[in-house]
Each structure stands twice: as C-alpha cells, then as structure tokens.
Design a protein around this nucleic acid. Structure first.
Length: 359
DNA sequence: GCGGGCCGTCACGACTGTTA
DNA sequence: TAACAGTCGTGACGGCCCGC
C-alpha cells in the first residue's frame, strides 16, 4: 500500500498504484453515470409486475427518451400493459457535446428529435395504429412523435431529476421505472420516498449497505427485484467512455459495453417469488456456527448455510436479501455489534452482515 | 472451463480529535 | 482557531472458490 501521507492531491494522477480500484475511483470522481440498461434485462424484470401497471402513469426520468430502452419498452408495450400514460424526461449532461448514443438513430427517429443534447419531455397518452399497418408497435410511436406536436416539449432547465419541471411529472406518476445515476442513488431514492411513489429502479447491491437504504429494507418498504440475483449485467456506455476495467468489451460496431457486478433491481412493487420460503437443510452445531465476539448471534458465511434448526439471531451476508421472504425471516439489525463496532467473529471482521431471525 | 456466489481490497473524501 | 493527524465510511471493482 502506498504511504498516503507522502501523496499530495496534485500528484495523484502520476502515481502508479497497484490498486485496480483506480478505475473505480476515477469513474466515481468523474461521475461516469451514463449507463444504458439493455432491453433484455428490462423485459426479464418487468414481466413479474405486468398486472400492476394497468391504468398507471409511468415516469422514466434520468433517461434520454430517444436513447433509452426504458422508453422503448414502455412505448412498445403501452397497450399490452394497459398504461394510462407514459412520461419521460431527458437529462442534458452536456460536458461533451454529441456524445449520446443513438439507439433510435438507425430507425430514423433522430430527425424528429429536438436539438441534440437539449433536454425535453415526452408524454404519451395513447398509442394507436397510426400507420394502418394492422399492428400497433414502435413504428406507430414514431409516427405519433412526428405528427403530434404536443407529445414532445423542450425543458427550460437541464432535466435534472431534482429540478421543479421534473418533479411535476413525478407528482403525476404512479410508478417510476429507471436506471438512476449510481452516484446519486441515495438522493434519488430519498426523492421517491418523499413523494411516496411506487418504483422499480436499478442500483448496485452495495446500496443495501447505505444506512438510509437498509432502513427501508428492514422496514419492508423496499426490497430486491425479481430477476437479477447474481452474476454480471452488461450496460452500454458512450463510445468515448474512458474506463478500461476487466469487464470491458467493444462489439463489432465499435460500441462499448461494461460488465458490472452486483447489479440489482430495487422496488416496492410486490411479486410472487418474494413470498416463497428459503429451504434450509443444514443442522446447527456450535462448532460450525461460532457466535460473534461482540454480539449474541451466530455467524453464517453463505446464505445457503442457514441452519434449519436454529431459532436465535443469525448474521448472514447481504446477498441473503436475494432470497428474503418477509413472512419467513425478520431483519433485526445490520453490521454493528453491541459495542457499535463492526461485527467480529473469532477476532476477524467478516464482510457486512445482516442480523436476522426466523419468524 | 464457465459462471454463480461470495469476500476483501484500498484509495480517498468526510469526519473527528489533537496540538500549538 | 488553523493546521495537522488519526479514524471512518464506502465503492457502476477484482478475484477466489466451488459446483456443474
């Protein structure tokens, strides 16, 4: 490890550290939050909630409607889901002009997009067979945007989700669905709670460890979504994206993708699988399940090792939440022992633990 | 070999305590 | 009270282990 004391701020970029976390911090510092969720990931998740979208106003902010697969999904499924209204707003980050992806470009929508890098709002109240081809699909949405001037309105600000003109549609919305900037996850979530919204958003699994987020999970006001429980998810990033991390890939068209670990959906929409019991099979022995030095609970290193015959307090990894059924387990607390320090077992600090108890 | 599942790293800003 | 020192908190990450 580098001796921190010898490093001054101005030197940082010169120093070759061994840490591969450098990319992480670089990304974090530069707020590289332009990640585009793939359509397949959206479809896989949304199929668990279809009935809950009937007659609802859906709002996707933090999104460029002309680039976003969220917009694409909801516009194409408008009638199948029975939506009342779809609203999206775009965000003009504008540090580098013209950097946006053009998912729609090849499909001829770019011509009707307002000016490049200028934020706007799209409101759709119905999708009909405008082009009379016998099917209602994205082609009709394009026609609608092209011919109905009321569907596309420019925003006066930059489209930031915290701005007044983005809060207005939020108030109108029943359900918010988007991939918010991870660096602003806490703030984004706080706003959703403030306006008491239903939501389905993408975040990092480590968000669980944020104090505010954990409280919501503990109080059963938020939980993990249905479709992503492990593995990596790929996100497309702008072509000039500087990150060169291990999960980086460029496809044959030169488009850049990054493989991100620990991605999860966060939601307060209920779904069936969430109420299925986890089936423990192991038997408790004091040898295999030592108690914490600073808390009266047993330590469990893998969710699958939760013993079937132990009824006291247990500390489990955060990935337990992938299998959490609130009727089966109760979440007691998080991370800290009685001394308010991180949980210790046999003198060692395990990774973040959640203390649970069978109901 | 692959990928699911999980833990651990460690830079660095924020926060808190100490010294002069 | 300013400057310095120590501690805490956190992460669009890396990598190991293990089962298939």
């Amino acid at each position: 490890m580098q001796n921190k004391k010898s490093i001054t701020k101005g030197d940082n970029f010169e120093i070759k550290t061994k840490s591969s976390n450098k990319n992480l911090h670089k990304a974090s510092k530069e707020k590289k939050d332009e990640f585009y969720t793939q359509l397949v990931d959206i479809e896989k998740e949304l199929k668990h909630y279809k009935e809950q979208f009937r007659d609802k106003v859906v709002y996707c902010n933090c999104d460029d409607p002309f680039e976003s697969n969220f917009f694409k999904y909801f516009a194409a499924s408008f009638n199948a889901l029975g939506l009342k209204k779809l609203i999206t707003t775009s965000y003009n980050k504008s540090p580098i002009a013209g950097r946006q992806l053009h998912l729609f470009e090849i499909e001829g929508l770019k011509s009707i997009k307002p000016k490049d890098a200028e934020p706007y709002k799209i409101e759709i109240n119905e999708v009909t067979d405008i082009n009379n081809d016998g099917a209602i699909n994205l082609e009709d949405v394009k026609q609608l945007l092209r011919h109905d001037k009321n569907t596309v309105t420019p925003l006066s600000g930059n489209g930031d989700f915290r701005s007044e003109e983005c809060i207005e549609p939020l108030k109108e919305a029943d359900i918010v669905v988007t991939n918010p900037p991870f660096s602003l996850f806490r703030e984004y979530l706080a706003q959703l709670m403030e306006y008491d919204k239903k939501f389905l958003i993408i975040g990092n699994v480590n968000s669980i460890t944020y104090k505010e987020c954990f409280k919501l999970i503990k109080d059963n006001k938020m939980w993990l979504g249905a479709s992503i429980h492990s593995g990596d998810r790929e996100f497309r990033v702008p072509d000039d994206y500087p990150l060169n991390a291990a999960g980086f890939r460029i496809d044959s068209d030169g488009h850049k993708y990054i493989r991100v670990k620990g991605v999860r959906w966060f939601t307060n929409l209920d779904y069936e699988e969430r109420h299925e019991d986890l089936v423990p099979y192991k038997e408790y022995t004091p040898e295999e399940y030592p108690k914490y030095d600073n808390y009266d609970a047993i330590n469990i290193d893998k969710t699958a090792d939760i013993p079937k015959d132990y009824n006291g307090l247990m500390g489990v990894p955060i990935t337990f939440l992938d299998k959490y059924n609130p009727e089966q387990f109760e979440i007691i607390k998080f991370r800290k022992g009685d001394d308010d320090k991180d949980l210790i077992v046999n003198g060692k600090f395990p990774y973040f633990r959640i203390i649970i108890k069978k109901k």
